[in-house]
Amino acid sequence: MQVDVVLFAHFSGFQPDGKGGRHARAFELAEGTTIADVIAMIGLPDEPRVIFVNSRHAPEERELRQGDRLAIFPPVAGG
């Protein structure tokens, strides 16, 4: 199945093509792949993150589906 993955801010440097940028990349994933699997696959650091699928919050254990758009955003400190 194909899933679009968007990584914001410094997470974008973890896109597999190494080119950074916040545009979506198409990932070819096996059925049953979870968000946590994708995070492990691309090696995101263990930092606070906001995760949404198709513009709605999703827990890391959620299984992705064909055509999903996964976005991960790392908030930074300061306020």
């Binding site: 606070p48 949404f52 919050h57 827990p59 908030p75 400190a77 306020g79």
Partner: peptide, 18 residues
């Protein structure tokens, strides 16, 4: 959301979105 800690920001956003 107007806190300063990144972990608290993520918790607030994730909880509210859910």
């Amino acid at each position: 959301e107007a806190v300063d800690d990144a972990g608290a920001k993520a918790m607030i956003v994730n909880t509210c979105l859910a």
